[in-house]
């Protein structure tokens, strides 16, 4: 654990906007570059710099991309012990950097890793954290960061700020901002820091990692989700849902009815008692749109619903409403899409 007494309590000493560069096995998370792009805009308003920070077994290869998306500096901590993400050593590494270099703002992607990390970092640093935000703005008067986030299942938005504690931390949902490279990327500065702890000081050991197939899956990770409900009629018919999801590079999910009827495992349920998702495209097939389902998906960018009932409530939140029998419609749609994929239209 970090020594809090070393943390500077004078908030005027904190400068620059930092972005945590998340990686898994050396592969960066797309949200990190989205945040760098947003950080550039915030930094120009604030008149400060954009800084990236990464922890891992090896992360220096990320520098080119980090500079391409606008970071001026890249702090890295590389060590064998960071090969896999683990809460405690990552927290201690990030806290060391923050205490030493005093960022004014610290942005993290609201991914599984980012949420796990930011909660513990903010507590260790005794600062505020605004989770799962969808908007970031600098108050022109005070220079404070205004962070906007949905609450109550997306029914209410709240704008939060953190006036007296630094850094101002927030996690930001993937896909909210667009990653745009800078026109003339400059070679930034890489600053490599050492951390002096060793594997035997870390109590958690990772025994096994499984990349998901059919089983438990983090639906939040996908840009496209094809979802089915009771109206799909059978477990076999979910084959169409899966096929469509696959064509779109997305994943499949369903309603609680679909779970209760044994069509899909609970781990793929969307809604109040399942997962909350906000993909770019959500396709709801044979789902009525009960409120418990809607709270889990109504912040999706685009919603397409297929339902035989013209009055189904799911249509009230859908951008495109298709009043058809999904079991007949999906095979045709898949066929058409396959043709487009093959012949480019």
């Amino acid at each position: 654990m970090i020594d809090l007494s070393k943390k500077d309590s004078d908030i005027s000493h904190y400068k620059d906007i930092w972005v945590f560069i998340e990686q898994t096995d050396g592969k960066p998370a797309a949200v990190s570059f989205e945040l760098l792009t947003k950080a550039r805009e915030l930094a120009s308003q604030r008149g400060c710099g954009v800084v990236a920070a990464a922890v891992g077994k090896s992360v220096s290869h990320l520098a080119a991309d980090v500079f391409k998306y606008g970071a001026e500096k890249f702090y890295i901590i590389e060590n064998e012990i960071f090969a896999n993400y683990r809460t405690e050593p990552y927290r201690d590494a990030i806290c060391e950097l923050v205490i030493k270099y005093k960022p004014e703002v610290f942005l993290v992607g609201a991914t599984t890793q980012g949420r796990d990390l930011s909660g513990t970092v903010a507590t260790a640093l005794r600062t505020g954290l605004t989770a799962d935000t969808t908007g970031q703005e600098i108050d022109p008067k005070t220079g404070y960061l205004w962070m906007t986030r949905p609450t109550f299942g997306g029914n209410l938005m709240a704008t939060i700020y953190c006036p007296k504690h630094r850094p101002q931390m927030s996690t930001v949902r993937p896909g909210v901002f667009k990653a745009v490279p800078v026109d003339d990327p400059k070679e930034g500065e890489i600053i490599s820091e050492k951390i002096n702890f060793t594997e035997d000081q870390i109590v958690k050991k990772i025994l096994k990692k499984v990349i998901s197939g059919e089983g438990a899956v983090n639906l939040g990770f996908y840009d496209v989700i094809v979802s089915g409900g009771k109206g799909m009629g059978s477990k076999e018919n979910f084959g169409m849902i899966k096929e469509l999801a696959d064509l779109l590079g997305g994943t499949w999910a369903g309603s609680r009815m679909a779970v209760q009827l044994g069509y899909i495992p609970q781990s793929r349920q969307v809604g109040q008692t399942g997962q909350t998702v906000h993909p770019k495209l959500y396709i709801a097939c044979g789902i009525s749109g009960a409120i418990q389902h809607l709270v889990g998906m109504q912040t999706s960018d685009t919603i397409i619903a297929i339902n035989t009932d013209r009055e189904a409530p799911v249509f009230d939140v859908s951008n495109y409403c298709i009043v058809e029998d999904a079991v007949k419609f999906l095979p045709k749609l898949i066929e058409k899409l396959k043709n487009m994929q093959k012949f480019g239209g």
């Binding site: 600062t127 949905p150 709240a158 700020y161 009230d316 495109y320």
Partner: peptide, 30 residues
């Protein structure tokens, strides 16, 4: 440390277009 500056309701989602035409038309549009 964190304070609520303001709370507001998000824009209500509106019911979008119902795709219409023959079955094949709707497939193409979709």
């Amino acid at each position: 440390p964190t304070m609520v500056k303001k709370a507001f309701t998000p824009e209500k989602r509106q019911r979008g277009a119902t795709l219409s035409g023959t079955f094949d038309d709707v497939v193409s549009q979709t």
